[in-house]
Every structure is written in structure tokens, then in C-alpha cells.
Design a binder for these strands. Structure first.
Lengths: 231, 231
DNA sequence: TGAGCCTGTTGCGCTAGGTCAAAATGCGGT
DNA sequence: ACCGCATTTTGACCTAGCGCAACAGGCTCA
């Protein structure tokens, strides 16, 4: 199967790359499809490829020694992921699970240096991405250290609505199926607490819930809640 | 002032670098000394240099909008730090505060690419370092999400004793001044709770405390406490 | 169309650990 | 040797949020 360059051109990663380079890059890639619930790669497996998500949605999870799971990150179309090897890791540190039917391009890890050389913009973008990952991680640590659960959930929901929001009549819809459990694993709490918080928000008109659904109705008030200490 | 290559040779970063390259690298560096309590760079300042700690000890802190502080990382001799710019950040994301009198080498950020090119080992090490940072951050997130405070403190103390431990007659001493407050900011809790925990450990013979001091007497039992759920 | 399952809701009790307050212990400077 | 400050300890109290449990509403698959 062949991926046309028009499909990936919209991603900022390839913003300023000449057509010829982009085509060469795509020629080296192998597409990889994963149905909902299927993994692109598993935690601990040898890192043989790195990936670019074309469409769909993934969650990267880690499981602790005692079986607890956390969601490290949500992967959106246009994101590079699974480039562990680039940071000199032999195996994938997490599992990339597709939440909905997803399509990614894959390249063998050996091609990473070549991938970066293909264009100075690409190299910059890739480093940028890594820097952002670090930032996000530290932000999360800061939030978990200093904020109570409700504010953390607010931040997380807002982030999701920005990264994966589709505007609707009465608000911004999170554009992929997400459970209370998922949100709990992203904020370091339990699904019970998340459920309670969302219920409270719903009766205040902040959001609108549903089975694996979430609609942010009033992002301004939600933002206010996320920023200041008391409601 | 001139730094001799023998001083830095012991750092694994320069393990396999030829003398000539190492000398050239040092020739481009400017030493920077900071007294205890002084900052090498401040959060938000333009990232003009990257650093290598020669000796001393630093803590990298971040302050939240509402004035709360957390400790992102402790920097040990031989560690690269402040290479924000390499990840395409314009400013330093945190403040690097020296805990004791410290000496670092600094290079202008423009030299980063050149720095990496100097030796393939160096490039690998640097990427390695970034990968480790990400790992550490995720480990911390995982711990904060799933473990109770006592286990987190145990992990943190053990990590410190491994990274900055000096073996003494009756245990391993954390080889720089560290307060209960510091440990609290590393684990996401309060100094009160840390104090209580350490007191309890002290009466069980696990550690020996003191003003800005900490000695791990029984790392085996401490490790056991860190690994399993109940005492 | 119904059975079963997955996801979400809600009540209740409990406790880890935060907050507030006060006292004790060093430690450095004069 | 003494004063003042920073750090630590400890107690008492209180609450956010976790664990447990029961139930309800959809969705899926036969």
C-alpha cells in the first residue's frame, strides 16, 4: 500500500520539506494499521522501528511491577512516537495501544539518523518533540506534587480538548473514545473520583459526559477552575 | 583559569575520547564557580550556555505560578545540565542552584552541535542522558500515581544514596547537605510527613538523621520497604 | 430481543497524609 | 558563651480522596 505525500503534508513536521525529500522518506516507510485495542508495540519489546501516526489515536501506557497501569501520553495524528532507540534505549518503555482504528508509518530504527538528515527542519522538529515530552513530564510532576485532584483533572481535560478537540454546537468534543478510567490513569487518581468530579461539573454545566464521551461546554470556567485554588 | 583534562577524564562522558579532542573541547570551555546558594542559571532566563558539573552539587528547581517549588533533579559531578537549547527551548525551564560550592564548565549553546560532533561517543552519551531524563521523569510520575508517600521517600533516599553516597563505617552517607524540605519537594509531599517517616525509620535502625544530614544504615531493608507494599 | 458485559454513578466509611501550632535542637556569627 | 535563625520534631486535628459495594444504563453479539 502506498501513502501519498498529500496525506502527510499537513503535519507541521514536514512543513518546509521539499517534495522530493518527502517522497524519498515515504518510499522508505512501511504502513502499519492497528484495529481498536491492538498495540503498535509492547512495553519491553525490542525497539525495531519508529513511528509516525497518520490517523487514529493511541495511548501509550506503562505497567508497574505490581500491575498498576498509567497512561504516559496520548498520541495524535502527526506525532512521532516509539523512537526510544533514538535515545539509545534497546526496548520500548511503554505499550502503544490504539484507541480507535489507526494508521501509522514505520521506519526501521537504523534509518533514524538518515531520517533526521533528510531535512534540517525535521531534525529540529524531532528535538523539539523530545524537549516537549520532557516538559510535559515535568509539568505533570509539578501538578501531581502541588495540586489537588480536581485541578489536575481540569488541566488534563483542557489539554485533551486542545489536542484532540472537535468543535460542536454546544462546546468542544474530545474526539476519541475515552473512559473515566483513562482520565484517572492520566491524573493519578481513581475512576471513582474522576466520575464524581465529572458528575459535579456536569450539574454545573461545565461539561457533558457520556459513555466514553466528553464534551467541554464551558472551557473558560473550566480554565478558571484549573488555574485558581478554590472553586 | 585552566581545567586540566585529567580532572574530567574520570567522567564516563569522555570515556573513549582521544586526548586531542578532549583538549580542544576544554579549550573552548569557560569555568563557572558558584558558592553554596548561588544559581548557575535561573528559570526563564535566556539559555545562553550549556554546562558540565565538575564538582559540587546542584539542585534544579521549578517554581509554579502560585509559588510552590519542586526539585526536578539533583545534578552530580560529570552530569551535563542546562542544555535546554539543544532541545530547542529558548530559555531555561528551571533554576540550577548550587547546594555546596560548585564548579562547572560552560559552553555557549551554539557550540552544542560541534560538541556532539567532537566524538561519536559523546553524541551517544548525550542522547543517552536525555533518554534517562525522560525515563526518570516517567518513573517519578508512575511512583506518584501509584505509591504511597513512604515508598516514594524510600525510593528517593535509595536513589540519592546510590548517586551521591559515600560509604562510612555504619552505612552510606548522602554526600551533600539535604533538608527534609528538599526530600519533600522531590517526592511530592510535605516536610512534616518526611520528618515523621525518617523519625520512624531512625527508631527502626534503617537510617540515621541529623541537621541536613542523612545516613542509610540498612539499605537492604530500606529497599525491601520500597519494593513491597506493606511494612 | 434478550443476555451479558462494560462503563459509569453514587453512597458510606475510613485513613493517609495534609494543615496548623508549638516546642526543641543545632549551628553560625559576634 | 550567647543570641538568633534555620531546621527538625511532635502533637492534635481534619479532610480529600481512596476502597468497597451495590446498582444502573447502554452496547454488543447471538
Amino acid at each position: 500500500m502506498k501513502i501519498d505525500k498529500s496525506v502527510v503534508r499537513r503535519f507541521s513536521l514536514f512543513d518546509k520539506m521539499p517534495d522530493s525529500d518527502l517522497e524519498a522518506l515515504l518510499a522508505q516507510a512501511t504502513p502499519r494499521r492497528a484495529a481498536a485495542g491492538e498495540a503498535m508495540f509492547e512495553q519491553g519489546a525490542e525497539a525495531t522501528h519508529f513511528f509516525l501516526l497518520i490517523n487514529g489515536r493511541l495511548k501509550v501506557t506503562q505497567v508497574t511491577a505490581d500491575g498498576q497501569q498509567i497512561i504516559v501520553r496520548v498520541v495524535h495524528p502527526g506525532d512521532l512516537f516509539g523512537f526510544a532507540r533514538a535515545l539509545r534505549r534497546a526496548d520500548y518503555p511503554g505499550t502503544a495501544l490504539s484507541v480507535i482504528e489507526s494508521l501509522a508509518l514505520t521506519w526501521p530504527t537504523e534509518l533514524w539518523p538518515q531520517f533526521l538528515d533528510r531535512s534540517p527542519y525535521l531534525a529540529v522538529s524531532a528535538l523539539n518533540t523530545i524537549g516537549q515530552r520532557l516538559d510535559e513530564a515535568h509539568t505533570r510532576i509539578r501538578e501531581m506534587s502541588t495540586q489537588e485532584v480536581e485541578r489536575r483533572v481540569a488541566h488534563t481535560v483542557l489539554r485533551l480538548s486542545q489536542q484532540a478537540g472537535r468543535t460542536e454546537d454546544n462546546g468542544v468534543r474530545i474526539d476519541f473514545p475515552i473512559t473515566r478510567q483513562d482520565i484517572a490513569e492520566m491524573t493519578g487518581t481513581t475512576l471513582h473520583t474522576v466520575s464524581r468530579i465529572l458528575s459535579a461539573w456536569e450539574s454545573n454545566g461545565l461539561v457533558e459526559g457520556g459513555r466514553q464521551k466528553l464534551l467541554v461546554r464551558d472551557s473558560v470556567r473550566l480554565q478558571a477552575l484549573a488555574d485558581s485554588s478554590d472553586s
